[in-house]
Design a protein around this nucleic acid. Structure first.
Lengths: 106, 106
DNA sequence: CCTGTATTTGGCTATTCTACCAAATCGCCA
DNA sequence: TGGCGATTTGGTAGAATAGCCAAATACAGG
């Protein structure tokens, strides 16, 4: 793989990697219903607020979400809604895998 | 987040994680053109064959690809083609990010 | 200006990844 | 059966992650 291709795939992988964590996936889905502030997300997730804040910055740096400060609060929202389409395909993968294991027909 | 939701998001994240690596993304795209054996993939990627083999097993365990042994060779192919749809959305993310940085309009 | 609330940042540890080399397996065929 | 090409597996060092706590920063009001 030449350097140009390599960096292209690295950039793509970085985007997927930013979503490849249970908490961050949860955040993405939560934001599909509209913007949320850090406190709301933290309450739902049930982890330390500093942990959630770091997950949010991972997603923001990847360009998946953006932040808007209003007063003392910071509201996050989805920048690229098409990432929500990933969910159905991921479910397909999981279903397919379950079927494989159950049937063992191959 | 309750345990049930948590494990659901963990399963989903595991699927994304299996693709969140430049080499593995490259493999997925390479397999969109049909099955390939380990040697072919290794030649294109330019890493140690044992490294490629391990990447392949990550994707196989996730249920994204499957292997079929024919003679001494092992051919890999895509199980769930919908993952190819991820690429266009990922490009959208990258484009959006590039635009942000260029324009600085916010 | 001082306090309280909201969020981010720094620091640290435990865990997980990744890549390579070496060694083990697997299937074919001389 | 012995050797060969193809692929996987075991081992390991180094890099990257994730989570928590403590401390820093940012804002709104009083």
């Amino acid at each position: 793989m030449n350097p140009k291709d390599r960096s292209r795939y690295e950039a793509r992988a970085a985007v997927l990697k930013s979503m490849a964590h249970p908490t961050r996936l949860y955040i993405v889905e939560a934001l599909s219903g509209g913007e949320r502030n850090v406190r709301e997300l933290t309450d739902r997730i049930g982890a330390d607020i500093s942990t959630v804040s770091k997950h949010l910055s991972v997603l923001r740096n990847a360009g998946i979400i953006r932040d808007e400060k209003r007063g003392a609060q910071v509201f996050y929202s989805l920048v690229v809604p098409c990432v929500l389409n990933f969910f159905s395909c991921v479910e397909t993968v999981l279903d397919e895998r379950a079927r494989e294991q159950a049937g063992w027909v191959r």
